[in-house]
Lab assay of single mutants.
Amino acid sequence: MASQGTKRSYEQMETDGERQNATEIRASVGKMIDGIGRFYIQMCTELKLSDYEGRLIQNSLTIERMVLSAFDERRNKYLEEHPSAGKDPKKTGGPIYKRVDRKWMRELVLYDKEEIRRIWRQANNGDDATAGLTHMMIWHSNLNDTTYQRTRALVRTGMDPRMCSLMQGSTLPRRSGAAGAAVKGVGTMVMELIRMIKRGINDRNFWRGENGRKTRSAYERMCNILKGKFQTAAQRAMMDQVRESRNPGNAEIEDLIFLARSALILRGSVAHKSCLPACVYGPAVASGYDFEKEGYSLVGIDPFKLLQNSQVYSLIRPNENPAHKSQLVWMACNSAAFEDLRVLSFIRGTKVSPRGKLSTRGVQIASNENMDAMESSTLELRSRYWAIRTRSGGNTNQQRASAGQISVQPAFSVQRNLPFDKPTIMAAFTGNTEGRTSDMRAEIIRMMEGAKPEEMSFQGRGVFELSDERAANPIVPSFDMSNEGSYFFGDNAEEYDN
């Protein structure tokens, strides 16, 4: 993207840094990872977990959730003011799984939030270390993106479920800051804005008074975040219109849905970061690795190297396929839920299948599930090659597409044709070009129609051997075009429920 120079890199967003050079960025990201790792080690000690239990991804998720809940100030305040039966607002906890007599047992633990905050700050040299908290939120978000298709949420806001490739980060909490905003897809931002506008339509006082002023500035800020994701002048001009509207209503909703559809071809720039579970960072720190000293990046080879040398386990339900569970977590670790499966298959070195073909449910185990038949197995999170994460949407291309997802959002900077089903997408653009945004709409449609099938995206960008740390010898991959490109292809993934 041309304006790259004016933006802070995501590592800076990730670490609240002012302008830093590459070495400083690597050190501050490393410091953040160190903090998460030290916190995780301490929690495993508190909970008396064995090494194996500490490497269980379900335990990692519970521990991450506990610290996120302990620092969720708004919710904590709300819980104190609106006490609900049987919930102690000062405590947080969740299921911890232990191996007892050759069987997995679930144990519900409860801790004072104050105590968890103390352990977290102690692991982070006394700081609140917001960057580390956001990092864990993005890992949870990436896992949700890989596990669930947001059909219901899309339909509720009037969008087409086939636009799911635009929904990265749709389950990120509001408090995820600049680093969170960077990884949100165009569809996620559109959905947040539509929800806001709908509230304004239904509630006369939404934009009024002292609160209304705050609401208005939040609305304009979200519009600017979305505008910054678009790469064409016409899309940005249309966002200006939406932002400046005196009284946002149905016309703005129409414009936003139009823009979301246009992003299936004229893709937005959305950041991709490899955020790993805390149970990967903990053992690495415990083994003596100093992330701050060595430096770390979320968008280069580092996460690949770390996963190459990590042992992570997962509980497996009786009829689940461990290899499929591994694929789910591998995609989440690489922030690749909406990437082209052919690119992923090449990088991973084994075939990556669409969601609907995987015999696996989510990673988390519900409290009512029976533990008797639970097994555990090693997650295979290694890769054959590594590639640089991208934040450009890439230019655009036609490809055989599917009944489910009709476009992709690249996660890796790797040369390819970008699949999208042009006739299906263009069919949504018939007729409606009147109104105050008509010239911009016409211009956007013209650009979409001009998108050429034979153009290559990320020209000359390749993948790298894991021994090639400096990215000196790019390998331009070859793809098996007979395979499906979309992950949520004609899909039956479970729906995400809060």
Rank of each mutant, 00 (worst) to 15 (best):
D203L: 07
S478P: 10
H135R: 08
V100T: 08
S310F: 05
S84A: 15
E254M: 12
G431L: 13
D421H: 15
A237K: 03
Y487C: 06
T396E: 00
G431K: 02
D112S: 03
I96P: 06
I425P: 00
N417D: 03
K91S: 05
R355T: 10
G158D: 02
C223Y: 12
E64P: 12
A336N: 14
G485F: 15
N125M: 12
W207F: 12
G394M: 05
M189Q: 14
S478W: 11
E494S: 01
I257D: 00
S326C: 12
D101L: 13
W330S: 09
N432H: 12
S392G: 12
R389A: 14
T378G: 08
M239Y: 07
F71T: 08
S165K: 00
G185D: 07
D127W: 12
A129W: 00
N319F: 07
R118Q: 12
M448L: 13
V109D: 04
G288H: 08
S274P: 03
E46R: 13
R174L: 03
F429V: 00
R470K: 14
N397P: 01
E469D: 13
I301R: 15
E46H: 06
R384Y: 05
P83A: 13
T23L: 14
D290V: 07
N319L: 07
N492Q: 08
T350N: 02
D127R: 10
M191F: 07
Q311R: 15
T430I: 00
V155E: 02
T151I: 01
D16T: 03
C275E: 04
G268R: 00
N142A: 06
A2Q: 00
V67F: 09
R348A: 09
Q241N: 07
A182R: 01
E292C: 04
H324R: 05
M331D: 02
A233T: 15
Q42I: 03
K452P: 10
N247R: 02
R213P: 04
G86E: 02
S345H: 10
R342N: 09
I406N: 13
M1I: 07
A387N: 03
Q398P: 00
T171M: 14
C275S: 14
N21A: 03
E220V: 00
S392W: 09
L108G: 13
K305Q: 14
A427G: 15
M222Q: 03
M136S: 07
K103Q: 07
S457D: 15
R150S: 11
A123R: 12
P89G: 12
Y148W: 05
P303G: 08
V100G: 10
N492P: 03
I444M: 13
R38M: 10
R106P: 04
N202P: 03
I197Q: 04
N319P: 02
P173H: 12
R195N: 04
R348P: 09
R446N: 08
L68I: 15
K351N: 11
L466A: 08
E220H: 13
F488G: 06
M222R: 00
V280W: 05
D290A: 07
Y496G: 13
A129N: 08
P318T: 05
N417Y: 09
G356N: 10
T430P: 14
R221W: 10
D468E: 08
R208E: 05
T437E: 01
F39Q: 04
M167G: 13
L328M: 15
R204V: 08
N247F: 06
M238H: 12
E320D: 12
E494L: 08
R26S: 15
L315W: 06
N205R: 03
R436G: 04
E14I: 07
R342H: 06
P161S: 15
S217Q: 14
E449C: 06
L344N: 08
M440C: 11
L108P: 14
V155M: 04
K103T: 11
C164P: 07
S482Q: 02
N125S: 13
R74P: 01
Y296M: 11
R267I: 01
K87A: 02
F304M: 14
N144F: 05
F479Q: 03
A323H: 13
R65C: 05
R117M: 15
C44M: 06
E375M: 03
K452E: 04
Q308M: 09
K90C: 04
G93L: 06
C223P: 10
R55P: 12
R150C: 07
M105V: 09
M167N: 10
P277V: 13
T147I: 14
N473P: 00
I347R: 08
R208N: 09
E81A: 02
A387E: 02
T350P: 02
R446L: 07
S176I: 10
P161T: 06
R441Y: 04
I116D: 05
D290K: 07
L259D: 03
D421C: 05
T151P: 04
E465P: 00
R75M: 07
I36L: 09
E80R: 02
Y385N: 11
L264V: 08
A366Y: 08
R75L: 00
T6C: 02
A337R: 13
L315R: 10
A323I: 13
I475K: 01
N247T: 12
R106K: 11
I57E: 06
M136R: 00
G187I: 13
M222A: 15
R382T: 02
D255W: 07
V408T: 08
E18G: 07
N397H: 12
H82G: 00
G404N: 08
F412M: 12
D340L: 07
R74W: 10
R199E: 09
K452N: 14
I365H: 07
V280S: 02
A332L: 04
R117E: 06
N473W: 12
P474C: 00
I197F: 06
L259V: 15
M66D: 11
G356I: 09
I63C: 14
H82Y: 13
I301G: 09
E254W: 09
H324N: 11
E192A: 04
R236H: 04
P283L: 14
G54L: 03
L306D: 05
N498L: 04
A70Y: 11
K98D: 01
P474D: 01
I406F: 03
G200Y: 11
D302K: 09
P423V: 14
E254R: 05
C333V: 10
F304E: 08
E210Q: 08
I119H: 08
R348L: 06
P283Q: 15
G268N: 13
D497A: 13
Q398M: 01
Y289L: 14
E320I: 03
A237Y: 00
E465S: 00
K77H: 14
Y78S: 02
R208D: 02
V408G: 01
R150V: 01
G404S: 14
R208K: 15
D112R: 12
W330G: 08
V100E: 09
V414F: 06
G54C: 09
W386P: 04
F206I: 04
F206Q: 13
G435I: 05
V299G: 05
R317D: 11
S467L: 15
S165Q: 03
V67I: 11
G94A: 03
L328D: 08
E292K: 07
W386A: 06
N473A: 00
S402K: 14
R204I: 02
E14W: 08
D160S: 01
A401R: 15
D101R: 11
N368G: 15
S353V: 11
E80Y: 14
Y40F: 05
K229P: 09
I201E: 01
D468C: 15
T188N: 07
E11S: 14
E369T: 12
G212T: 04
E465G: 13
D160G: 06
A123G: 15
E115L: 08
E454T: 13
Q415Y: 00
N309M: 03
A336T: 10
V476L: 07
E469Y: 06
M331V: 08
I197G: 02
C279K: 09
A493L: 09
K325Y: 08
E484D: 07
R446H: 05
K357R: 10
Y219N: 08
A286Y: 05
S269Q: 10
E81I: 13
L466K: 00
G450C: 15
S310C: 15
N432F: 15
N483W: 00
Q311N: 15
Q231P: 07
G93P: 12
R8I: 00
G180A: 10
C44S: 07
S3L: 15
C164A: 15
S478R: 09
G404Q: 05
G288Y: 04
R75E: 04
Y40E: 01
F338K: 00
D290S: 07
R436M: 03
E495V: 15
G212V: 01
E484W: 07
Y148G: 03
I36S: 10
N334W: 03
R216P: 06
M32E: 02
K87M: 11
M374V: 03
S165I: 07
R384K: 15
R118D: 06
L358I: 13
T171P: 02
